[in-house]
Nucleic acid binder design. Structure first.
Length: 249
DNA sequence: CACCAGGCCGTGC
DNA sequence: GCACGGCATGGT
């Protein structure tokens, strides 16, 4: 089955990509501009091969998820093939701090303003996300002026603690959660998003307002262990599905 | 005008 | 330990 590239790139796991024209996605990553229409466009590039986790069998995972129950089957059928991205730790951490009590469209816009204000131009009009060094001297007032609102002081704290992000790679899930949550503005939901979408920790199960609705409506009395060993990917299917179905309702 | 968005922090009990 | 108000901003 063909990937649902639009959902993978603009459905809330990353805020780096924009759809320039129908089906053409671009992002500045790895110090260059990538433009792709399909995963095949990405398969020749070593960075993107890892970014898209091309060695993992998402077809198999999807089939097993769909076989679990009727809700998941509907979610898989309506969404198509999803993948879990492996994003840069620093970018993911800052992105998901921006995401709290916010919506995907506005987060993407904020992310873009971040790149233009604090990042660097790698091609005319295309700016990279700022490095931790570039954000090192940015004040809470500057973040606030950009529209970050009450998240501004959280960002300052995260930048100051960014060096620990590399250590999290080797931690087990609970230790990694606890380590991330020592950063201001990172609670259980944001921490699990970071661990899934940057560290490939597949037992993450972020509970945002959409997933709370799904769980209370369709999975009363159950928790993330029901979805093992596909907690993260199942969650992503349910998240896409509930948002899409509430759109047309 | 209200309410919502990939929530979390601080306070009070 | 759990409940609750507050919180910046922009969209509906």
């Amino acid at each position: 089955m063909k990937e649902n590239l639009r959902e993978i790139l603009t459905g809330g796991q990353t805020f780096s990509w924009k759809e320039e024209e129908d089906g053409l996605f671009s992002a500045v990553l790895n110090e260059k501009v990538y433009r792709i229409r399909s995963l095949e466009d990405a398969s020749s590039d070593a960075y993107l091969r890892e970014y898209f986790d091309l060695d993992y069998d998402y077809e198999k995972a999807m089939r097993e998820i769909a076989a679990k129950d009727e809700i998941l089957r509907a979610a898989v059928e309506s969404t198509g093939l999803l993948r879990i991205l492996k994003q840069d730790h620093f970018i993911a951490t800052i992105s998901f701090i921006l995401s709290q009590n916010n919506n995907i469209k506005r987060i993407t816009g904020l992310y873009d303003r971040f790149c233009r204000a604090f990042g660097h131009e790698v091609e005319p009009g295309y700016f990279s996300f700022p490095t931790k060094k570039e954000l090192g001297n940015v004040s809470a007032e500057d973040f606030r002026a950009l529209g970050c609102g009450f998240r501004a002081p959280f960002l300052v704290d995260a930048v100051s603690k960014a060096d620990m992000l590399d250590d999290i790679e080797s931690m087990d899930f609970d230790s990694a959660m606890n380590a991330l949550m020592t950063i201001k503005g990172i609670g259980p939901k944001v921490a699990s998003c970071i661990l899934i979408f940057s560290y490939q920790k597949r037992e993450g199960f972020p509970m945002d307002v959409w997933m709370k609705k799904v769980m209370s409506t369709y999975y009363q009395g159950k928790d993330k262990s029901y979805f093992s060993p596909y907690e993260a990917l199942s969650q992503q299917y349910l998240f896409s599905w509930i948002r899409e179905s509430s759109k047309k309702a």
